[in-house]
C-alpha cells in the first residue's frame, strides 16, 4: 500500500491541480498560526479577519505557481507578512495598547463566560492571556515581526531574515532582544 505524501508542499501542489481536500487539510494545519501572526501584529480582530481572507485567497490563487524552491510555511508567512505590512501602512498607526486592551476585553469576556472555566480559573487565565498580548504588543515592530514569524511560522533565522529582507545578524539581534524583553515581561508566568 503506497503512502500518500501529506507534506505541506505536496498538498499545495495537489491543490494546484484541483484537489480541494488538500487545501482544506493545509488550511486546518496552519489556520491558527497564521491567525495569531496576523492578529498579534494588527491588533484588531476585524482587520485580522479581513487579512486572513486575503492571505488564503492569495494562497489559493497562486497555488499552481508554487515552486519547491522554498518551504510552504516560508511562502505562506511571506504572503501573510506582506498583507500585514500593507494593512499597517493603511492604518497609518502602530498597534496601540488601547486597541489590544479592547480586543483583550472581548476575549476575556468570552473566557469568563465559558462553561469549562470557573471564576477563579478564569481570572488566572485572563491574567496570563492578557499578559502575553500586552508583552507582545510592547515589542518594537521589527522585533515583534521577527519573533512571531519564528514562533508561529516555525521558521529558522535564515528564513526569517529572507522574508524580512534583513541581514542575518540583524535578524538574530532582533530575535535576541525580543526574547530578552519577553523573558522579563513574562517572568511572573515562567
Amino acid at each position: 500500500m503506497s503512502r500518500v505524501d501529506d507534506s505541506d508542499e505536496a498538498l499545495i501542489n495537489r491543490y494546484g491541480r484541483g484537489d480541494v481536500t488538500a487545501f482544506a487539510t493545509l488550511y486546518r494545519r496552519h489556520e491558527m498560526r497564521v491567525w495569531r501572526y496576523i492578529k498579534r501584529n494588527v491588533g484588531s480582530r476585524a482587520i485580522a479577519d479581513e487579512l486572513m481572507q486575503e492571505v488564503w485567497f492569495a494562497v489559493a490563487r497562486e497555488a499552481p505557481r508554487f515552486k519547491l524552491t522554498a518551504r510552504f510555511t516560508a511562502w505562506l508567512f511571506t504572503i501573510a507578512r506582506n498583507r500585514v505590512i500593507d494593512a499597517l501602512r493603511a492604518m497609518r498607526r502602530q498597534v496601540s495598547l488601547d486597541a489590544l486592551g479592547q480586543e483583550g476585553s472581548a476575549m476575556l469576556e468570552q473566557l469568563t463566560t465559558g462553561t469549562d472555566v470557573g471564576p477563579l480559573a478564569a481570572v488566572v487565565v485572563r491574567d496570563q492571556a492578557s499578559a502575553l498580548a500586552l508583552a507582545i504588543a510592547q515589542l518594537p515592530e521589527d522585533q515583534r515581526d521577527a519573533f512571531l514569524l519564528q514562533v508561529e511560522g516555525d521558521l529558522s533565522v535564515e528564513e526569517v531574515a529572507a522574508i524580512t529582507r534583513s541581514p542575518f545578524e540583524t535578524t538574530k539581534s532582533r530575535l535576541r532582544y525580543a526574547r530578552a524583553k519577553l523573558r522579563v515581561l513574562l517572568s511572573e508566568y515562567a
Partner: peptide, 29 residues
C-alpha cells in the same frame, strides 16, 4: 525548525512560555 535560533529552539524557555500562554487565547477567525 529554528535550528539556528540564537537562544535555543523549540525548547527555548521564552518560546515554550509563549506557546503555553498562546493556547489560552480563544481568539480564532
Amino acid at each position: 525548525m529554528n535550528t539556528s535560533a540564537p537562544e535555543g529552539g523549540p525548547n527555548d524557555s521564552v518560546e515554550a512560555l509563549y506557546r503555553r500562554l498562546a493556547k489560552l487565547d480563544p481568539s480564532e477567525p
